[in-house]
Amino acid sequence: MSDDVASLSANQMDALREIGNVGAGNSATALSQIISKRIDMNVPRVSIVPLGDVPDLVGGPDVMVVGVFLRVYGKAPSNILFLLPRESAFYLVDMLMGKKHGDTQKLDFMDESALMEIGNILSGAYLNALFNFTNISLLPSIPALAMDMAGAILSVVLIQLGQMGDHALVIETEFKTDDEGIKGHFFLVPDPGSLETILSAVGVE
């Protein structure tokens, strides 16, 4: 399978959605335990979209977001991107650092470190669940963080895909706390060559 993620069958899409479901479910549980709040999660979207349309999934290329990026190594190399609107990231920092809601107005070194650690924990939870489901062992890199325009942050992942094709397959889950104070998007973007490995591991060729 080269570019043509566009040719996935309904069964294959379902299998990927289920992977998103177990992975993100585990991540949501981890996040919920850390901040002691209920986390709601939508049914994962498995989308095959032209590269340029990916930023629209989070509200457009010029929306301000905080992104935590991890490269995933192993038999199915992938990228993970955890994106939060800026206000959500600030609120999450308030909770993690024991501050009042609204105290955080910019990110200092400790705040960034805390958010990267959240990215780490969520990714670990996601990949663990993926392992239980597929038996594919995957290891995340150390996280990196940027606060900027969504298009600029997503371009890091999109450029890698751009070498192989013109479409991106993204498994995307939206999280939110039940008061809607924190919203975030968790993206798993398998490298084009990784799809076959993942699909055959769950028995959907």
Partner: peptide, 24 residues
């Protein structure tokens, strides 16, 4: 102008591209 896209035109149009990272 989207990602991996080009637009041409004449005055008084303004051409704009949002959220470039490593792109040019």
């Amino acid at each position: 102008v989207g990602m991996a896209d080009a637009k041409v035109g004449t005055a008084p149009a303004t051409l704009i591209s949002y959220g470039l990272g490593s792109c040019i």
